[in-house]
C-alpha cells in the first residue's frame, strides 16, 4: 500500500502542495487529475522521494520514504513527464547504468529490451530515437527493478496514438501483476479508457486534493444527464416534477430535468406528466460535457466532495 499522509511541500518559496492525503492499494490505479500547475508533478516528486517534505509522511509498503529512503525507493519506479533519458548514451547503456544503481543483473537488460521492442535499437544513442521509442525506453528503465509502485507523470503527453494505446495496455497489464500505479494527466478524455479497471481519481487544484472518487462513480457523475422536455403545459409540468422531487428549470420553451440515469428515469417522468395531463411533445438528453464539469471542479464552482475508502 502507498500512503500519502498530510503532505505539504514546495520549492523553497512556500508550499506548492498543501496537506495532501491519499492511499493507493495493490492492483489499483490512482489517477491524479488536474490542470497544468495544479500540483500533480510536485505531488509525484514527493511520492518518489525527489522533493523534500515540509510536513507529512509518505509510507510505501510500511516503509517511511524519508526515514528509510534506500529501502523505500527500491520499491518505486518513476517516469517523469517527457522522455527523461540520457540522449548521449546508447539505449543499452541507459539501462545498464540504472541496472547497476538498482543492483539488477545485467542479463535482464536484453530481455527487457526485447519486451519493449527496443532490442534492435540497443546500440543507438537514445537521443536518436523517436519520441515514442524514447518514452518506451524511459518506461523500461522505470520497470527495470520490478518496482511495486509505478509513478507516471503525464505519461500520454506528446505521444502518437499507437504509443498511447500500447502504454495504456502496459499500465493495465501491471495491475494484473498486483502493482500500484499512480499516474497523472490533464487530459480528461483519458479517463474513459480506464473504465472497468480498479481505478480511483483524485482531482487536484491549487495544490489541494479537492475530490477523490472511484473512477466508475466519477464517470457516472460526469455522465449524469440533463433531459430536455418539450411539453404542452410548461408551468404545470415544472410544478408536478418539482413536487416529485426532480431538479428542474425552465430553459426557453423547454424544461430541463436532471436525472442520474436516462434509461430508468425518463419513463417515470413520462408517466408522471401523462398522469397530470401534460402532453409530452419531445424528449432528448442534454449531456453535461466532461470538460465543463472538470473546469467547474477545478475552479471550485462545485462544492461536491466525496471521500471513499480504499477498499
Amino acid at each position: 500500500m502507498l500512503e500519502v499522509i498530510n503532505v505539504s511541500a514546495g520549492y523553497g518559496r512556500g508550499d506548492v502542495i498543501h496537506d495532501i492525503s491519499f492511499t493507493a492499494v495493490r492492483g489499483e490505479i490512482y489517477l491524479l487529475l488536474g490542470t497544468n500547475g495544479a500540483g500533480k508533478t510536485t505531488t509525484f516528486r514527493v511520492v518518489t522521494g525527489i522533493l523534500p517534505l515540509s510536513s507529512g509522511r509518505v509510507v510505501i509498503e510500511g516503509v517511511d520514504l524519508w526515514k528509510k529512503p534506500e529501502k523505500a525507493k527500491m520499491m518505486v519506479g518513476y517516469l517523469p513527464e517527457g522522455e527523461r533519458v540520457y540522449p548521449n548514451l546508447s539505449v543499452y547503456k541507459n539501462l545498464l547504468f540504472f541496472s547497476r544503481i538498482y543492483g539488477v543483473p545485467e542479463g535482464q537488460i536484453n530481455e527487457l529490451l526485447k519486451e519493449f521492442g527496443l532490442y534492435e535499437h540497443r546500440d543507438k544513442k537514445a537521443g536518436e530515437l523517436s519520441r515514442g521509442l524514447r518514452k518506451r525506453l524511459a518506461l523500461a528503465r522505470a520497470l527495470l527493478h520490478d518496482p511495486e509502485v509505478l509513478v507516471l507523470d503525464e505519461p500520454f503527453s506528446n505521444l502518437d496514438v499507437p504509443s498511447v494505446m500500447e502504454l495504456r495496455e502496459r499500465i493495465i497489464e501491471m495491475l494484473k501483476e498486483e502493482k500500484i500505479v499512480l499516474f497523472s494527466t490533464h487530459i480528461l478524455s483519458e479517463l474513459q479508457h480506464f473504465e472497468g479497471v480498479n481505478c480511483r481519481v483524485g482531482i487536484i487544484r491549487d495544490g489541494k486534493l479537492i475530490l477523490e472518487e472511484k473512477l466508475e462513480n466519477l464517470i457516472s457523475l460526469l455522465r449524469s444527464v440533463e433531459v430536455v422536455l418539450t411539453v404542452t403545459n410548461k408551468a404545470l409540468a415544472l410544478r408536478v416534477l418539482k413536487e416529485k422531487g426532480y431538479n428542474t428549470r425552465a430553459e426557453g420553451r423547454n424544461i430541463v430535468v436532471s436525472v442520474s440515469s436516462y434509461a430508468s428515469e425518463v419513463p417515470e417522468i413520462t408517466s408522471i406528466l401523462a398522469e397530470n395531463g401534460v402532453g409530452l411533445l419531445q424528449v432528448r438528453p442534454k449531456e453535461v460535457p466532461l470538460e465543463k464539469l472538470f473546469m467547474e471542479l477545478s475552479r471550485g464552482n462545485r462544492t461536491h466532495r466525496r471521500k471513499h475508502s480504499t477498499t
Binding site: T48, K73, Y78, P80, I101, Y102
Partner: peptide, 8 residues
Amino acid sequence: EVLFSTSL
C-alpha cells in the same frame, strides 16, 4: 530527477 528517485 530520475537519479533523485533512486537511492543516490
